[in-house]
Write a protein that binds this DNA or RNA. Structure first.
Lengths: 237, 237
DNA sequence: TATTATTGTATCTAACCGATACAATAGAAA
DNA sequence: TTTCTATTGTATCGGTTAGATACAATAATA
């Protein structure tokens, strides 16, 4: 078991954390990044702490970038969770125990934390997930197959999805979740997995085309025995 | 000039504040509460700090309650402002100077603060505004007659209004802004001042009545020479 | 060449909104 | 009392939009 190094108190604003619900689309369904603290069976959203000389937004962006290797990330703030019971006592102690690391009861990470939750949208295919210094494993999970998450992280996922749904029609959400070129069906599947309901194909196509946000390219021949769909890209770039 | 007492470091979570955009409706237009630190010409949103054993939401609620004397308040979180430049140095020093109060450069209130912004909706007529220990004056201001506000408080007002607009159709916003009984015109004026645009009278009435959220009561005779409108109340209580 | 699944688009209908019209007031003016 | 005026409540017409249905145009297979 590798030695772990906890974040140092003097580097970060105390009692303040952030967590990110990182959404990716694998072509079929929406997935989010969840990490597991090794051997402890504690699952959590990726998160971190804010340095004294760092903007909150930048801290979150850096963290998501480090976790995923990507720089093209759509970040939106969802909600700040400030319940006084938000503390990591058991989780952190378990982690330290597993790693044979001494931790005092008055360690700053055992205190109460306020956490600002963000969602991130990015291109699933380009991601290579990186574990961090706390030596955890990390992976993609479907929304309906999430493991039990620590603290209020489950609530964060709900809130993130809720905010994402509200933003869907005005924020060109597909842009960061899809590859450069995609079919109308791809886009519809993205919408359906975010809204968690089926959409009417013909009405969806009509509505999206009327928005005038797509450029139509060549057809995509999949080898299947039916009419080939057009490829599209977003024209807003 | 009265002696001031600054909040004590040991009572509150450092670097964490909240601010509230308190909306009231005076029958004609939307107003918000702004306070002025006496003689310093610094105007600010009412805000405060979170105690170690206090939920964030509760802290904000208590603060708004203390400022307004009301308990029936609709509170919604808008956004958390985390720019590293958010510090009150000049403002606080000016206040202390005016009050002949010594403050050290390393005072905790001079540090960087992250602030969680909320909006509050309440019944304008029932409010009696209370100044607080920092000995400031406090009053209602129209959105289009706001004085210059400290830090990013102007941005907070914009964000609050934006979130309020988004919530307008699903959150029964009128309930806390209007008295128990009100006319259709009153409700329409509330909607118009929030959305900052004129609405079509007949369509508005039709839409609201179709929602089935109002109970119709007796007519309201204003003494004017025209048909008297009905009074309504919300039925969701 | 016929078959099959899928795509792109047109058409029909129901719901909804803005615009318009108009009757029903409540009080003032004549 | 009668007339007048401003406002309110509601009905109706026309345009827009979404769901439902229909159907032609494929791309590969049988």
């Amino acid at each position: 078991m590798k030695k772990i190094v906890l974040p140092k108190k003097e580097d970060f604003i105390p009692h303040l954390a952030y967590d990110a619900v990182i959404f990716g689309f694998n072509g079929t369904e929406l997935k989010i990044v969840v990490l597991e603290y090794q051997k402890t069976h504690h699952f959590a959203l990726p998160g971190g702490f804010v340095q004294y000389n760092q903007n909150l937004d930048d801290a979150v962006y850096q963290s998501v970038k480090n976790r995923t290797g990507l720089t093209d990330i759509q970040l939106e703030q969802c909600h700040t969770f400030g319940n006084q019971k938000r503390r990591n006592k058991k989780v952190l102690k378990d982690i330290c125990k597993v790693h044979d690391h001494q931790i005092n009861d008055d360690h700053w990470l055992l205190d109460r934390f306020i956490s600002v939750c963000y969602y991130a949208l990015l291109n699933f295919e380009e991601v290579t997930l990186q574990s961090d210094g706390l030596s955890d494993s990390i992976g993609w999970y479907s929304l309906d197959e999430l493991p039990e998450l620590i603290l209020d992280h489950k609530e964060m996922v709900s809130k993130a999805l809720e905010v994402l749904q509200k933003n869907l029609d005005e924020k060109l959400v597909g842009m960061n979740l899809l590859p450069e070129k995609f079919t109308m069906k791809d886009l519809q599947t993205v919408y359906e997995s975010i809204l968690q309901k089926k959409l009417v194909r013909t009405a969806f196509q009509r509505k999206i085309l009327a928005k005038d946000i797509l450029v139509r390219h060549e057809k995509k021949y999949t080898g299947k025995a039916h009419k080939a769909p057009y490829l599209y890209s977003f024209n807003s770039a």
